[in-house]
Design a protein around this nucleic acid. Structure first.
Lengths: 182, 182
DNA sequence: TAAGCTAACTCTGATTATGAGAGTTAAGAG
DNA sequence: CTCTTAACTCTCATAATCAGAGTTAGCTTA
């Protein structure tokens, strides 16, 4: 894992990606969320190689997302379980799965996995919501702003993006004008 | 990108991760969602190196998430914008950001970015919802099942996970019994 | 007219990660 | 005494990444 450049970034997204590690780790997390817990489970489930799996488990452990613990002595055997923090990654995996289904990237013609309410059996999805009212919010109404923890780069990103959108709008207006002229 | 093993997997999560590419691509996607669009924007924003950025943009384009287009001639200059499919990745990035904030992985003491409703200014979050009723669903009620597109491996994963949970339960019961004995 | 500058790259060479698979350890099973 | 299982570690060839230099084409400033 070449995390150079990811360390020291002020960005929640970069932070989570660094904590996870790479795409193999995402598959391990998927398996952990399903309920798998052993080295050989992960190997069988995702086809990851020994060196990579071993490394990724250590990384997840070092980042507090996974806990390694002995489940038997004689011979010693270990399993891996999600920590409290590790469970927090769940929603990201679920959203990823549903995006994959929608964009038809699963490799199958219909969803290989589904998420259900274990009490009612109903299918579960997700939605943007207004944090104060709890009302659903449409994707088109979503805007990104600098938060209280923003550093200079984040401010640059947000304001520069605004400028880019303005430029694009101006170009569209000009193109429109040119078309009207002819 | 060593995508060996990711090709041919029947898994929506692996599919999206393969389409995205790696964590640098996630940062590029973040920037695109913010509104940045040019090569130098991405470089400045994420600190990615030339070779990697160039490669990642090509990969995203090849996977239909990003479109490269000329925005001026003399000299020729290009920009990158999200395609319709590319916009679908948005929720994943947002969820990732909010997880990072909650786990305090942003590198700052408070969120560097926030998501708001551009109409009302209210902060936007997300929630699990029941797909038929639209009611919110609690994370503890969420269960993963094999879907209609599941192949043998997915079925194995789901049923094996169930077995693992049963084993863990039995071990806990035994440990409980031992403790009661003494 | 020449030297700088900008945007969007490509190229190079040293370093680091990955994939495939063989080997290790410790214990129980046949 | 050999086989099997679980959880790894080791090796080596190959592929990806980093840092930074170079390229191209048309401005712009002196």
């Amino acid at each position: 894992m070449r995390s150079k450049g990811f360390d020291g970034m002020v960005c929640s997204i970069a932070g989570v990606m660094a904590a996870i590690g790479d795409r193999w780790a995402v598959l391990i997390l998927r398996d952990l969320l399903c309920g798998l817990s052993r080295y050989e489970d992960f190997r069988h489930s995702s086809g990851v190689t020994n060196a990579t799996l071993s490394d990724r488990l250590k990384h997840l452990e070092a980042n507090g997302l996974v806990e390694r613990r002995r489940y038997q002595q004689k011979p010693e055997r270990f399993e891996y379980v999600l920590t409290k923090n590790g469970w927090q990654i769940g929603p990201a995996i679920m959203v990823l799965a549903q995006i994959g289904d929608r964009l038809d990237l699963s490799g199958a013609s219909s969803p290989p996995m589904k998420f259900v309410n274990r009490k009612t059996g109903a299918e579960v999805g997700w939605s943007y919501i207004d944090r104060s009212t709890g009302e659903p919010v449409s994707a088109v109404d979503l805007a990104i702003e600098a938060g209280p923890g923003a550093d200079e780069l984040v401010h640059w990103r947000v304001s520069h993006a605004k400028a880019r959108r303005a430029e694009a709008k101006a170009r569209r207006a000009e193109a429109e004008a040119n078309r009207a002229e002819t």
